[in-house]
Amino acid sequence: MRLSVFTVATPDFTPQQLAAAAKDAGLHGIEWRYQDVPADQVNAAPSFWGNNRCSIPTRWDDTQLQTFRDAAESNGMSSLAVVPYLNCGDLAGTERVLQAAAKLGASFIRLGVHRYDRTRPYPDLLQEQRAYLKQAEALCREYGVKGLIETHHVTITASASAAYRAIEGTDPEWIGVLYDPGNMVHEGFENYRMGMELLGPYLAHVHAKNGVWTKTEDGAGDGPVRWSVRWTGLHKGIVDWAQVIADLKAVGYSGSIGIEDFSEELGTADMLRYFADSLNHLLNRN
């Protein structure tokens, strides 16, 4: 298994700074965030989803893309992925991302997935999702870049089994799943190995982060106790990464694991080094 970084987690670094820090940490690939910086955030402090300085703009041109490609290549890194925030059914947007990925030599992109917020029935959403994925599959084949859906809370693919139901029947050469145990702390937890075995050839990439449940309301009187998830350090939360790595080994997974740490417990360069050191320790266990 190889290690990568998703640049949503490195908002204070430019592409060149990020690639150099990733090389120094011993990582192998970069997953470039693909999203515009909001106009009101351009001069703000760096932040994950605001002024993220390591993001490909959606209205990119070839010169802008070359900046990202040069940053990776000059540091011996691969541009592993282009990771947008697509909506389910947005084929024009999907093709635009695939074009960027092909120019960067990336292996995959992230595809759009329907949110689930109780406003529409799940069967209707699933039908639309499957139709979109079949159309995206054809585009992915055309551009030679794989499309992944992510196990993500507040979507119809929060778990491995829900993701499998969405992609079942597609070609695993061109459609796969980005497996994210940290997101499954919020919603979608299943036994890790069982989920990996279910996904089989669709298991295409893994993201590494962690979260912990915290009480937000004590339930005074007859009121309910309420909980929410906050992000925490890689080995301080509910996800047992030693178990996840052991299960990945057991199912023969040979892809990459990408850091996506939102805990802010370490600066960017230290976070990358800590991730590489701790994951390599687990990967090198017998």
Rank of each mutant, 00 (worst) to 15 (best):
I257N: 06
Y202S: 01
H207G: 01
A208N: 09
P15D: 11
G105Q: 08
D222Q: 08
E128F: 13
A72R: 13
G89W: 08
A276P: 05
G89N: 09
A276H: 09
D218T: 10
D180K: 02
W49G: 05
I156Y: 08
P172E: 11
E173S: 13
A9I: 06
R96V: 05
S55L: 09
P46A: 14
G50S: 12
A92G: 04
G89F: 07
T155A: 11
D40E: 15
W213A: 05
I149M: 00
N51R: 10
V113E: 00
T157P: 02
I238M: 14
W60E: 09
N191F: 00
H153R: 06
S228H: 08
K215C: 14
D270K: 13
N284A: 13
L282G: 00
R118K: 14
L199H: 02
D62W: 03
A71H: 13
G252C: 10
L126K: 03
Q127F: 07
H207A: 03
H281L: 13
K146M: 09
H186Q: 07
E190S: 04
Q127D: 14
M194A: 14
G233W: 01
R115H: 14
V37C: 00
G195Q: 06
G252L: 12
N286Y: 12
A45G: 02
T67F: 01
T63P: 00
L111Y: 09
E128I: 02
G50N: 13
G237V: 02
V82M: 08
Q243E: 10
R230I: 15
S278C: 03
A19S: 15
V37L: 00
G252I: 01
V5I: 10
C140R: 07
A9T: 13
C54S: 14
I238G: 02
M271Y: 07
I167L: 06
A22P: 04
V225C: 07
D117G: 07
A269F: 03
T232Q: 02
